[in-house]
Design a protein around this nucleic acid. Structure first.
Length: 468
RNA sequence: GCUCCCUUCGUCUAGAGGCCCAGGACAUAGCCCUCUCAAGGCUGUAACACGGGUUCGAAUCCCGUAGGGAGCGCCA
């Protein structure tokens, strides 16, 4: 790995299912690394032992793999910056925390969560920003000893120097400028000894050689804190880019009620990774090329300069459109694999014909299952209107149809020719009764291919029902 | 409350002062194809949040207003 290699990362915390916003962030970072032949790191931010779990971690990895992402370094693959789970990096953090303490860049804070909560409330009530009041900022050694004698275990708090400015360039938002006066002293190590986000996230990026960080815009206003930590430690900061949030169709932050569940939820509903990827790729990102893109084409088309700055709405209709395109582009084998459960009722010999007939009319495996029932299930029962149409066609109509079906196999052209000969019917008057008798429905995939997939005995039986 | 970010068709967006009475995609309407529904092809409807500037000229620059979002945690 050379000095110039681009290193990107995705750093989720395993505290729940992977949501679309995070999935998009992961995709963008992956693409960024991929397009430049750089490295993509998966780092697990599991410093919150209470909320993190191995089950979530496994699900996370599975979801990312399903999406089509892979990483050169990660908890399962290893790498030269291992370990990649922050819960296993505590010792590393301790050294840097010690340095902050020694240089006075951080100090022990003995305030209890209850005290801090009270302070926040009163500040908010008084119309002031809820920032750390600085209670423990200037404690003397004697005062510290006294508190520790009372059994208080301190946190480590970063000392933010007032009256300064933090400036940085955000690759998507441009130059940013924050006053340190607006930033309260923040915790760098919790009382239980674990490292806090602002600290370990920034330190790990530096330690792992991360050069570019694309993350949610919710981190924009927090970036100065991380820059302060890095500067105090003499570590190099990555280039940050803050990507807009994804919101629901009402403009509110995305949640389950928007029909936008976890990635695994989408997968369970039968969405193809290709569709989800392409949708995510274009949410808040306007690539120059159009159409469904494979991973490599996507990496090539990914362009930070084309990342939007305003929040993007998640639109299920748009996703479904990608899904439709993806389903239509599936090879027969891939289609069969995708709709495996729905195809259980389809005789293997008819599978290829069935898929060919039904493909333009399906978007989800459920659709496949519905057509499988129509073609391979019990003879359909007709609606009243359907019965009227069939009855109007008459027994001779179906007698001729059944005879032609028996003679020709399921050749629709032969059947319609025979019926036309026998009854003089043509056009809708000819096709509609046939469709109804055969499928029970007045709409559906093209009849000829559909009939070709249908077992001959079944077709004959459905026609004979209405003959004579 | 304070700080920061954002605001072009219903949706995702193109647009970096004249190329824009604003382009594409999805959605939508119509037409073609057609036994139907799809698929496919073609055509159409539809937007610069508002108000002030700057300029010969503004979607594009500046200032306000309004609306939305985020941050201010011993969550990440």
């Amino acid at each position: 790995m050379t000095e110039a290699t681009l290193v990107a990362r995705f750093a989720p915390s395993p505290t729940g299912a992977l949501h679309l916003g995070n999935a998009r962030t992961a995709l963008f970072n992956f693409l960024l690394a991929r397009r430049s032949g750089g490295h993509f790191i998966l780092r697990i931010e599991d410093t919150d032992a209470e909320r993190s779990s191995d089950a979530y971690l496994e699900a996370l990895v599975e979801d990312l793999r399903w999406l089509g992402l892979d990483w050169q370094e990660g908890p399962d693959t290893g790498g030269h910056s291992a370990p990649y789970r922050q819960s296993e990096r505590t010792g590393l953090y301790a050294d840097f925390q010690e340095r902050l303490l020694v240089t006075g860049a951080a100090y022990p804070c003995y305030c209890t969560p209850a005290e801090l909560e009270l302070s926040r409330r009163t500040q908010l009530a008084a119309g002031r920003p809820p920032r750390y009041a600085g209670t423990c900022r200037e404690l003397t050694a004697a005062q510290r000893r006294d508190r520790e004698a009372h059994g208080l275990v301190p946190t480590l708090r970063f000392r933010v120097q007032p009256g300064a400015e933090v400036v940085f360039d955000d690759i998507v938002h441009g130059p940013q400028r924050f006053a340190t006066d607006d930033i309260g002293d923040f915790i760098v190590r919790r009382a239980d000894g674990s490292a806090a986000f602002f600290f370990c996230n920034a330190v790990d990026d530096a330690l792992m050689g991360v050069s570019h960080v694309l993350r949610g815009e919710d981190h924009l206003a927090n970036t100065p804190r991380q820059l302060l930590v890095l500067k105090a430690l003499g570590l190099t900061a990555p280039t940050y880019g803050h990507v807009s949030m994804i919101v629901g169709d009402d403009g509110a932050p995305l949640s389950k009620r928007h029909g936008a569940p976890s990635l695994s939820g989408l997968r369970e509903r039968g969405y193809l990774a290709l569709a989800v990827r392409n949708h995510l790729f274009r949410l808040g990102h306007a690539p120059a090329v159009q159409g469904t893109l494979a991973i490599d084409a996507m990496a090539e088309a990914f362009d930070i300069g084309r990342l939007g700055r305003s929040p993007a709405r998640f639109d299920l209709v748009q996703l479904d459109s990608w899904q439709k395109e993806a389903v239509h582009g599936l090879t027969d084998d891939a289609f069969a694999q995708w709709a495996r459960a729905a195809l259980a009722a389809v005789p293997p010999a008819e599978q290829a014909a069935f898929i060919a007939a039904v493909r333009p009319n399906v978007v989800f495996p459920d659709d496949v299952a519905a057509w499988a029932r129509v073609v391979f299930g019990d003879a359909p029962s007709l609606s009243e209107a359907g019965v009227a149409v069939v009855r109007d066609a008459g027994g001779a109509f179906f007698g001729a149809a059944a005879a032609a079906a028996a003679a020709s196999g399921n050749d629709l052209a032969a059947i319609t020719a025979a019926v036309r000969e026998a009854t003089g019917r043509k056009g809708p008057a000819l096709y509609k009764p046939l469709r109804l008798a055969l499928t029970g429905l007045d709409h559906g995939p093209e009849l000829a291919p559909l009939l070709r997939a249908m077992p001959r005995a079944k077709a004959r039986e459905r026609l004979i029902r209405y003959a004579g």
